[in-house]
Nucleic acid binder design. Structure first.
Lengths: 366, 366
DNA sequence: CTGTTAGCGCATTCAA
DNA sequence: TTGAATGCGCTAACAG
């Protein structure tokens, strides 16, 4: 005998109908915000529902209505921190609207992607989907969505055409960040890029170029190295940049994890941040505060973005509003990892392998 | 007109029955692993189900069977990293067993807790629940679970009596960790504790005492300060310990986040880790690798623990096996943040506010 | 504006 | 060992 979870007897729609002295259809209308109910009736019904603590049975609704009241969060493999933040916002919005959230991690490769999407539709039948980059621009995913006519909202998609969801002006944000470095006197500023499948990779790079251009600094391709938005990208990219004959005095990493990798490389080489090297990241994830020195970065309201995308999606599903592409604002967060350009940029940095023991780590907050 | 998500026509149980030449009841029996089906019939049905890609309708099942096929992950407010890891394991186990996962964040306070639990039952009707500390030992939560006769599994509960789920021997793990410090010559070892509502707080403290006792080091209450398993605990606790007249040469923080806070305090005071101070954490979360110096810590197989707890829960729900309390093994992870005790522990550390500029940060990996 | 009637797809008594 | 009939609680045409 398996253990059943619940006493079957709970208040049903007909109990509410009886208490209100109307038919169950009227109750149904009120619940689903359908028209053709007198305002007085509607209010009375709502009151009784509240008093009886009536909770519609999800399964009955799903079965009869061909609607699941489920939103799926479809993601690939972004940073766990990022994902967790987004998830929090999405969850909050779902709960507020009495929708359920199902998590749909998608495997790598086209075949796996297709299989996972199919599995999602067969098993969970979401009424709508929230997409996280880089899946926002994955052809296989989009095709499945369109084939099944499932509405979806995107968070920071590359292409915002015909999309609903939320975005941020990464380009302008980076522009401001780099301008800050320029203001500190830096002119050789390195950049470790993110994964090219993300729109963010390109916007951030564009913002970097914008800022250099405006400052009259020539763009030096040597100072721009590839990355994947992960810690290891910071290790690899940081080494490569610092090994340059004429290394940068500041490095803009495409996100905080990458910046953490750069901080480590600097430490290993005996470079003090920000005295010998300025570093900045992007996103303002928890790690930005947790590492030492704390990162100068751009705050991205990640949870809020999840919430907004979900609300736009649900609004669209309801059909009341068309669903928009909302833009959220960023904020520059100045912390400890950026500072004035070193007064005398000697050739010492060139022989990076041979550490300069003369350098002292200067304590902050004396 | 609202947008509907799915074409209604999919293969149903009666299609399978027709194809197999049996009644739907037989199909149902096979699907639910009930007895009283001839082996040959069972196999044929399974084959046809696979060929037709038949997926039972969750809503119909839930409606008719009074079963939701939902597992709820009930959590309070632990570290996001920890939560994310656990969630990954739980999700994997749920998917493997064709269960759905619903996330159930629980608010603070008794009233909120009760309300959130009630909401969970009314709305999602989980067939089972996975509990994360410190909710594993929350009276309100447990009471709701028992009242509703919902089976649950616990991850690292304080009390393992009458519980199914998974645990780890934190006490032995810490014992090993402290023994490592003792082996490096440390005798004044500080400890920043975790939140007392967690079993882990007590086990880790006990392991710390065990190790000291075995090494013949007297337990000094002054060296043990409270904390909450968060970064800020490391800041506060670290300052307090380093401000001691006779400060410790090593600090064991109850988890990695806390250790990161200690690392920062050390940095601010110009202390080099591990040259002037050894620091270690617990959990081996990503931050342990991402900060510099990387943390010596204890690896806890968090995702695996989520997976195991869920599998035990589902086994219990099915009623086949009773459900056990599984113990997983830990592993010591030696990284960069621990080293030999400083040769001459001078009084310099006492005047912690007045930083010692003479100290040089020694580069690793020369 | 409101009520009546018929399923949605499956699990489940009770017979056979 | 199997099958036919009944209903889970709700939504959705279609009348009134």
């Amino acid at each position: 005998m398996t253990s059943r979870s619940r006493a079957a007897t709970r208040v049903r729609i007909e109990d509410v109908a009886a208490a209100a002295g109307v038919s169950i259809k009227t109750i149904s209308r009120v619940l689903n915000r359908e028209p053709n109910v007198r305002e007085a009736t509607r209010r009375r019904v709502e009151e009784i529902c509240a008093r009886l603590e009536y909770q519609p049975n999800r399964f009955a609704r799903g079965l009869a209505g061909q609607r699941s009241y489920v939103v799926a969060l479809v993601y690939n493999n972004p940073s766990l921190n990022y994902l967790m933040e987004v998830q929090g916002g999405v969850l909050e919005a779902c709960h507020a609207q009495h929708y359920n959230l199902v998590l749909a991690p998608i495997g790598d490769g086209k075949a796996r992607t297709a299989a996972d999407m199919r599995g999602l539709f067969e098993h969970s039948r979401p009424d709508g989907v929230v997409l996280i980059p880089p899946l926002t621009d994955n052809a296989t995913v989009i095709a499945h969505l369109r084939d099944n006519a499932v509405p979806f909202a995107c968070i920071a998609p590359r292409s915002t055409r015909e999309r609903i969801g939320v975005r941020m002006d990464d380009r302008a944000a980076v522009h401001g960040l780099i301008a800050h470095l320029v203001g500190l006197g830096h002119r050789r500023i390195g950049h470790i890029m993110g994964a090219a499948s993300h729109g963010a990779c390109h916007w951030r790079h564009a913002g970097y170029r914008d800022a250099l251009g405006q400052a009259g600094i020539e763009y030096d391709p040597e100072l721009v190295v590839p990355g994947e938005f992960v810690f290891e990208s910071g290790i690899r990219g940081g080494k490569r940049l610092l090994d340059l004959p004429s290394p940068p005095t500041a490095i803009f990493a495409a996100n905080d994890d990458t910046a953490a990798g750069v901080i480590r490389v600097a430490g290993e080489r005996g470079l003090s941040v920000p005295r010998d090297l300025s570093v900045c990241g992007f996103d303002d994830t928890p790690i930005a505060r947790h590492i030492y020195p704390a990162l100068t970065t751009v705050r991205q309201p990640t949870a809020e973005m999840g919430r907004i995308a979900t609300l736009e999606l649900l609004q669209h599903i309801r059909g009341a509003e068309p669903g928009r592409m909302v833009e959220v604002t960023h904020a520059l967060v100045l912390r400890e990892s950026t500072g004035p350009v070193p007064p005398a940029r000697s050739t010492q940095a060139r022989i990076a392998g041979a550490v300069s023991r003369s350098r002292t780590r200067e304590p902050r907050r004396p």
